[in-house]
Amino acid sequence: MLFAHDTECSLIATAALVNTGGSDGEGLPDVAALDEYYVTHAYSGRHEHTQAELEAVRGLRPRLRRIWDADVDEVVAIVNGLLRENDALPQLITHDDEPYHFHAVPRDAPLATRIAVEAAMAIADLVRGGELSRLRICDHPDCDNVLVDLSRNRSRRFCEAGCGNRAAVSAYRARKAAAQR
C-alpha cells in the first residue's frame, strides 16, 4: 500500500466517478446506478436515493475531472475550494470495523458533500507527497478515461474499461499481420 487505505479508496472512487461522465455516455443514468456506485465504493452514512442527490453527485464530475489536467497550483485551488465550501474539519473516525481514518464532514452530510471532501482530502495527500503524476489519462487512443496509478513502479497505463486488453489484442494482431507478410 502506497498511501493510507482511505486515501487509496477515495482516489479510486473519484476516478470511477469522473469516468461515469465520459464520452461513452452517462455512466450514472439513474438513482439505481448511484446506489451501485455507493455500495461498490463502500460509502457509509446518509444516502437519500433521490434524483436531487444524483444530480448533486453528477455536478461534481467536471470539477473533479479538471484535477487530472491541471498543474499543481490549480489542483491546490480546486482542493482548497472543495474543503472550504464544504466546511471540512478533519477528524479521525472508526466505524463499520474499519481502522481509524479521516472524515472531514459528518456522516449525515449530503452524499455529494462527502464525496467532494473525501476526494479533496485524497488529492491533498498526493499533492503533499509530490505524487500528482499518479493521476493519468488512459493511454488507449480511443479513450479519455482517467486513472489512478497505485502501482509501485508507476507503470499503469490503461483504465478499468478494458483498454489494456484492447491494446494487447491490437498489438498481437499487428505482430501476426507483420509476420504473415
Rank of each mutant, 00 (worst) to 15 (best):
10 S>C: 05
169 V>E: 03
117 V>G: 09
52 A>G: 12
126 L>W: 02
161 A>S: 12
26 E>G: 04
51 Q>K: 15
124 A>W: 09
117 V>T: 05
53 E>H: 13
99 P>E: 01
120 A>L: 06
68 W>D: 14
73 D>L: 13
18 V>Y: 01
68 W>G: 03
98 E>F: 07
121 M>K: 00
109 A>D: 14
9 C>F: 04
106 P>L: 15
16 A>P: 13
77 A>L: 13
125 D>P: 00
148 V>R: 02
105 V>F: 07
144 D>A: 14
44 S>D: 13
143 C>R: 09
102 F>D: 02
170 S>V: 04
143 C>Y: 06
4 A>E: 15
141 P>T: 09
100 Y>P: 09
37 Y>F: 15
107 R>H: 12
53 E>P: 12
133 S>P: 00
138 C>T: 08
160 E>N: 04
162 G>M: 07
15 A>S: 15
9 C>S: 07
12 I>Y: 03
78 I>R: 10
29 P>Q: 10
109 A>N: 12
99 P>H: 09
114 R>E: 04
10 S>H: 11
47 H>S: 11
167 A>W: 03
176 K>Y: 05
33 A>P: 08
45 G>D: 09
140 H>I: 00
2 L>E: 09
156 R>Q: 07
30 D>G: 13
157 R>A: 08
132 L>Q: 08
8 E>C: 06
156 R>C: 02
119 A>N: 03
155 S>I: 02
126 L>C: 04
59 G>S: 15
101 H>E: 00
9 C>A: 10
156 R>M: 01
52 A>E: 14
139 D>R: 08
40 T>D: 13
80 N>K: 03
39 V>K: 14
106 P>Y: 00
103 H>G: 05
55 E>I: 15
117 V>N: 10
91 Q>I: 12
7 T>S: 01
110 P>M: 14
120 A>M: 06
46 R>P: 03
116 A>N: 04
111 L>A: 15
117 V>K: 06
57 V>F: 05
120 A>H: 01
108 D>T: 15
33 A>K: 09
88 A>N: 02
14 T>P: 01
118 E>W: 05
91 Q>E: 15
142 D>K: 10
7 T>Y: 00
69 D>L: 15
136 R>G: 01
58 R>N: 11
59 G>M: 15
105 V>R: 11
70 A>W: 06
24 D>K: 07
151 S>M: 02
134 R>T: 00
167 A>L: 00
43 Y>C: 04
4 A>Y: 04
57 V>H: 12
45 G>H: 04
80 N>L: 00
71 D>Y: 07
19 N>V: 06
156 R>A: 02
175 R>H: 06
74 E>Q: 14
136 R>D: 00
108 D>P: 09
47 H>D: 08
72 V>W: 00
164 G>P: 01
